[in-house]
Design a binder for these strands. Structure first.
Lengths: 187, 187
DNA sequence: ACCTGAACACCGTTCAAGT
DNA sequence: ACCTGAACACCGTTCAAGT
């Protein structure tokens, strides 16, 4: 005798994402997710292999959202330099608005919790495209890496509160973006 | 009737650090630490407030070691530019040799697990000093932030295995360091 | 076919009881 | 004064039993 489906994978991933963003990754427990979707924890294992696999699905959703946000930001800028700065600002804004989500994206996690590399690659494709447009195809990869590493480093240190260097972070970020654009030879 | 002391705080912190580096932060459990020092888990609470406080002590020790490593690296270089490059390389080597330790240093943790800010500041002081020496006092802070953010971003993405861009990471790192030195106006 | 309670092996932490 | 077993409130996960 079949039993009715009381939830679904998308509903589970949505509930898990909401828990993550509201209360951090340690609040994303199987029991909390189950309660959120109106089911008991063991039932979740019908839709997802385990907590790590759920974390990976959550991370993939976040990566897609970040990618879409970056596409939007890049689309609104005219010159190559402005597009790079717009990307940097968009990443920082995303991380400040959704710190737990952003942190999950770059967290060191067990292999089972790794998001699909193809999804991650898709989200970063904008950066590579904009970089190619700004500095030319043969220097695009280096430029994208330099920019990405700096933005991520700045943002992750800001989130971890490791700067402890006063409140002029906005200015420091703008300074860094300008200097990097100079270093990449953008007009 | 007094009972003999079977362990000590330094021994506990050392055991915790060893567990972290060997098997990751999730292996650093109170029970595992206790077993390592020959005691039962509840006894640890005589020396440390809880697991988070222990994590903070571990992080402080690691921060001191990183600081000492950076001092050494900076001391061996002649020009300002070479000192900055030496610092960047030293951070990357430290992170590659002791990934779990490095990750803990910049991890987002509960407040109770935050290392003493003064200890962290002491470990980063080298970077600020070298930056001041290289680009002058008024641009030192910006330069230190730019360099630190880039190095940390590069290294943390390398550790998280998020680059997925082939194997030329050494070259990419050297490229980034050179470009940043250019951007900071170093000869 | 899905859902559940019960169970297992873990956690961190508290505390009364031992020495 | 320190150490311990037992206990409590959690985890993730498995599985036989229900419908």
């Amino acid at each position: 005798m079949p039993a009715p489906e009381r939830t679904s994978l998308p509903q589970i991933v949505a509930a898990a994402t909401a828990l993550l963003e509201a209360s951090g990754v340690e609040a994303l427990t199987m029991q909390a997710v189950a309660a959120e979707v109106g089911v008991r924890a063991p039932s979740l294992y019908k839709r997802v292999r385990g907590r790590d696999a759920l974390l990976a699905l959550v991370a993939e959703g976040i990566a897609r959202e970040l990618g879409a946000t970056l596409e939007l930001a890049a689309g609104g800028a005219e010159t190559g330099r402005r597009r790079l700065v717009a990307l940097a600002n968009a990443v920082r804004e995303f991380a400040r608005e959704r710190p737990e989500a952003y942190s999950l994206l770059f967290a060191r996690l067990p292999d089972a919790a790794r998001p699909d590399p193809a999804v991650l690659a898709g989200s970063v494709a904008v950066v590579l495209r904009v970089a190619a447009d700004a500095v030319g195809p043969e220097r695009a990869l280096d430029a994208a890496r330099l920019l990405t590493a700096w933005v991520h480093g700045f943002v992750s240190m800001e989130l971890a509160d490791r700067f402890r260097m006063g409140d002029e972070l906005d200015r420091a970020f703008a300074f860094g973006a300008d200097r990097l654009a100079d270093a990449l030879g953008l007009e």
